[in-house]
Design a protein around this nucleic acid. Structure first.
Lengths: 132, 132
DNA sequence: TTGATTTTTCGATAATTTCCGATATGTCAT
DNA sequence: ATGACATATCGGAAATTATCGAAAAATCAA
């Protein structure tokens, strides 16, 4: 999939960004929907959406639409380049990533509609800080 | 060496750039001096120097000063992260990289002082095109 | 249909990066 | 010391990217 230099550079650019790398690493254990990611990482939902767009363009993600929400996941190992695999391995051992994953567990314990509305309200009300 | 997310992102940024990635891949087979790289890739010497600075900051290169010139090489496998290794493996199979390496062979057949003066003259005279 | 809900896209500013000629630094030879 | 040469750094204009609120699009439910 990275059969020329430009493509490889684009893939690297996709992950050389804190949020995008966190999102990719967050998804490794299993799929999440957009609002779950936003809530887990405490960032605006539109930022998550744009991060996902880049990761998709790079070929790192797959999508599954279920009703109104979109679940994203890392491509299966079969389709992952060696580079992606070792990137995930290396990222997976980082504290910050492990904490994100713990947080995702908590978020997954809440029903998706509740998480989504939480994210939406956080956007409306308070800028910078994340609700109460 | 990449024990936190920010560090890993910095390393990825270092290689998510066509020239920097080409330089890194070019050095895998063995050390070269700055002017050899500039001549091989047909880019201004200052651009090479800045590319090397980033790659060094990321911890990918080692340096050896010999007289007026500086030889750079990729760190030994012992000190390379898995990520760096698979990056080099993947880059090494790209056509563009292989062509660069062939060109480096030709450049290495010329004595270094001659190569260096060539690079220097190319800078003075003709912009964009590479002399006659 | 309308309204509610989730995600994407747009818009516009700010911040960062790229690029390369010109200049500075450092090193050798004399 | 001086000059020649290799590399590094600077300056600053142009291009790219980041960020996130606001608006649009898409989907479901009634």
């Amino acid at each position: 999939m990275a059969d020329d230099l430009r493509t490889l550079v684009e893939q690297l650019k996709a992950v050389s960004h804190p949020l995008r790398l966190r999102v990719l690493a967050l998804l490794e254990p299993g799929e999440l929907c957009v609002c779950q990611i936003a809530e887990t990482l405490q960032v605006p939902q539109s930022s998550v959406s744009e991060a996902l767009k880049e990761l998709r363009r790079a070929g790192f993600l797959t999508e599954r639409k279920q009703g109104r929400w979109v679940f994203v996941a890392v491509v299966k190992k079969k389709h992952a380049t060696p580079l992606l695999k070792s990137l995930l391995a290396q990222a997976g051992s980082l504290d910050e990533v492990q904490q994100d994953r713990l947080r995702a567990q908590e978020v997954k314990a809440i029903s998706i509609p509740v998480v989504c509305s939480k994210v939406q309200k956080a956007a409306q009300s308070d800028p910078t800080v994340a609700h109460a």
